[in-house]
Every structure is written in C-alpha cells, then in structure tokens.
Design a protein around this nucleic acid. Structure first.
Lengths: 252, 252
DNA sequence: TTTCCATATTGCTAAAATAGCAATATATTT
DNA sequence: AAATATATTGCTATTTTAGCAATATGGAAA
C-alpha cells in the first residue's frame, strides 16, 4: 500500500469506491442503496454513477439500477492480460487437475483473498474462473501465505481496526501463526477434514497458488512440492514476459 | 453509451482514462510516457497515478513505472463475477471444443472487440483466457454482429471521426454490410481461407460468441446452429442468475 | 388507467478541490 | 561523481464540486 499522495484526486477515490461496491454487489444496485452502503451523499453517488455510465464502465438498467458494464469487462480483461498472470498461471495450474483436488489461484486484497481461479475436481476447468466472492484471508491458506509476506505493521493496521480476523482471537496470535508460515515456506489450513496448502508466487509475492482436499501428511507434502515447482515455472515465465514487454516498449 | 451527465466528475473521467491506457499498455509505463500518450499534463497524470497507487488499483515499480495492481485484479474478478457472463458462458463454450475450431467470446468496446475468450483448438482451454488485445471490430465476426445491434447514429459517430474502420472504405458500405448481418442473424467474416461466424448473446446484446476455422458452407451453417443454441442457453441462465440476484437482494 | 409516492436527477452557488508553474526529490546516464 | 531526465510536491488563482431545493421519472397502489 503506497502512502497517501500530496494531492489525492477526490473524485477518483470516490469513483473507485463506487465501482468496488458495485463489483461486490449481488446484482444491479440503485443509487439510494449505494448511497447508504457507502455512507456517501446521494447526489454525489448519482454524479459518480452517471459519469461511469457515460464512460461505459457501468450500465444502467431500465429500472434505474447500476451494474458493471462492457467497459468494465474490457478493463478487466485488458488489465488481466497486461499483468500476464492469468495467461501464464492458468495452463500450469490446469496441469495439476489430475490430482483430483481443488486448485486455486488468488491475490490478497486488504483482509480478503480474491480467487482468480477456484477449480473443483470433476468440473470443467473453465467453471473455476469467476466463481467466488472475496473470502476472509485468515481462513484461507492462500490468504495466510500472502499475509505472511506483509510487514508486521501492515498486518497490525489491517486487523487492529476493522479487518475480519476469523479464526484468531488476537493480532498477536495471528502474527505468531504468520511467522510460522513464513518459516515453513507454505501455509496449511484445516477445516472439516479438508486440508488446504498454498505457496506464494513471486518475490515480492503478487499471488498465491493452492491445493485443497482430503489428504494425509504424505500427500500434503507432495502437493506442496508440486505447488512450489509450479510457482517457480510461473515466476520464470512472468520474468520472461516482463523482458518481452520491455523490448516491445523500446521498439516504439 | 449514456449521454453526458449534468455535472460529470472530471477527476473520475481522467482517472479512468489513465487506467484504460495502463490496461492496454505492453508493460509498466512511466508518468511522462502516459502524459504524452493521453495528451494530459504531466502533473495531472502523476496525481492520478499516485491516487490509484494509494488505492492499490495500480502498482508502482522500483523504476517508477506503473501497471495494473492487485486491486485492479480484484475489481476485474469481482466485476466479471458480478455480471455472471464469464461463469455462465465458459462451460457452454467449452462444450464446443470438440469441433476442433477456434472458439471466442467477446464484447464490443467502441470500435474494437475485446475477447474474453479466444481458444485455439488443441490447447488447454484455460490458455484462451486473457490472451488477446483489443481487435478492430470491423475485422471480426463478433465485432460485426455486435455493431449490427448498434443504432445507425452510433455507428456513424464511431466511424465518422476516428474509428478504425478496417476492411471498408466508407461508413455507407459498412452500414450496408451491418444491415445484411442484422437480417441474417449472424455475421460471417472471411480472411486467408479462414471463415469466422458469430452470433449475439442477449437482448439487447451484451456479448457475442464465435467459431473460426477452415470450413465449407455446410460446416458454417452447422456452426451457426450450434452457436445460436449455445447463445440461447447462456441467455436463459443469465436470466436465472438475475432472478436469483434479485431474490438475494430482497432478503437483505 | 390515474394518482400517489419514492427515488433519480438537475440547476445553482458557496465552498472545496484542483491545475499547472516552479522548486525540490529521485532514478538513470555519462 | 556529476549531469541529466523524470517524478513529485507546495502554492494559489482558477475550476470543479457538494448538497439543498426544485424538477423529472419509475413503480406501486387505488
């Protein structure tokens, strides 16, 4: 998290807040609902929505509700493409399908994990994409491995106030667990007989990959090994993409 | 495209322009480059970038360049999830894989098509996601079927000024072709021995699905039939999702 | 179908935010 | 290490915006 700039652009801050709220809403939302949800004055919300609507980023239904529109999908697709993470990581993760476990790729967002992939065994791979909501980071092995890469200060700030610290009763105990995870090199979370393990991707970590299912200690170690190998391949390819991008820019 | 609101939020307009430019760039971009590319004063650009960076929407590299960050990926994933298009359409399109042709799903963005899926035969399905850049709409069957749904005024405005009208030498001839496409119910584009056909999804159309490959007239008609069936299934499921969403909202 | 009600949207203007110049800070190149 | 190019900030005249009240527009009720 970068520090606050000298002169932040307020309209942009408020607009992104609106967009984020629309993105996590279950369907089109009205101006007034959004105003209440965000604690923002309704005229302000209307102004932001109308601006975003004019840009095509959100669309307005016939019943005056708003939801992400074509422009947002384009922005989504293009930014995922620009980062390269998706197109590099997915084929590698698809190779883990034969394990018969759940496979996941995610990024950390504040106190949540956002699963870019959440693929249940025995389903078409494509069904694992875009199927889950934000999930409390402390309940997820992906979240734990990513939180373990954050500075202690950041974690304190995140969970000292209003973060959803599920599964821990104090920041100190969370920090203790994160220290273990860091030393281990992977995170392991157990719930209802299901074991989930995850490793970080990148240095500094920009994502995490995980496997989840009913497994014993031996299978767990095996999965960790596979994940570490997969992460290394993804990282290598990401580095190559960034080199290609640099060359491509210099050619302009 | 909604009309201009009474009081647009300028900071938000400019911020989205910056974000869009970052999304279509081949790798991290510097403040000055972005300023030139957008024709925007450099202090302004810096202010917008720093604001987006503070929000986690973009990240700043050690060499002071900017690219979409975790917050953008989260926004992307969440908005794709919120619209439901991805998770509904992908499994249906995956079923067309056995045809051995290229399969695509896309949305129209101004004078371009953005491919949400662009799956080449014989590759893992996941590789077709997040792999292409924006493409001139007039060169794409998906683009043509979606342009055909636009009001004539919109097309004139789009291509009368600065749209990339590849393959046509006048707006009139383009409009003539779009009229044909509309009457046909599908678009067909031929290039280098490869035939591409596409149908719209939704009413009004919010996306298009297409198949592309070397095929004769009979195979072409067959593909169109399959696409229309697939589109109908997607539409039906999208309607159900929107019903579910409405019920879910009313339960709050 | 008409009327009523709740919400969306706009005009106006005092208040707040911002645009861009010049100064300062920070990478990169020589 | 010095020079150069770019990034970033402080300041203030200028522009944009926040929110009240008026007007417009869907949806519900009669």
């Amino acid at each position: 998290m970068e520090r606050k700039p000298a002169q932040p652009v307020k309209g942009l801050e408020d607009g992104i807040a609106v967009l984020q709220q629309l993105a996590v809403s279950a369907g089109p939302v009205s101006c007034l609902e959004l105003s209440c949800e965000l604690g923002m004055e309704k005229t302000r919300v209307n102004r932001l929505l109308k601006t975003l609507s004019h840009l095509g980023i959100v669309y307005r239904t016939s019943s005056r509700r708003y939801a992400p529109g074509a422009g947002m999908h384009v922005l989504a697709a293009q930014s995922l493409y620009a980062s390269g993470l998706f197109r590099v990581a997915l084929p590698h993760l698809e190779m883990l399908e034969s394990l018969g476990h759940l496979i996941a790729l995610g990024v950390l967002w504040r106190d949540k994990v956002c699963y870019l992939l959440h693929h249940a065994p025995g389903t078409p791979f494509a069904e694992g994409i875009g199927r889950t909501r934000l999930y409390p980071a402390t309940r997820s092995s992906l979240g734990m491995i990513l939180l373990a890469q954050q500075p202690e200060d950041t974690v304190r700030e995140l969970y000292g106030g209003r973060g959803e610290m599920e599964g821990f009763d104090s920041v100190e105990s969370l920090l203790g667990k994160l220290c273990e995870v860091r030393n281990c090199g992977y995170a392991c979370v157990e719930a209802a007989g299901t074991v989930s393990v995850a490793v970080k991707i990148g240095e500094p970590a920009y994502a995490a990959a995980g496997i989840s299912g009913k497994m014993g200690t031996k299978a767990e170690r095996e999965c960790v090994g596979l994940l570490l190998g997969t992460a290394a391949k993804i990282e290598e390819e990401m580095v190559n993409i960034n080199k290609d991008n640099k060359i491509r820019r210099e050619r302009k």
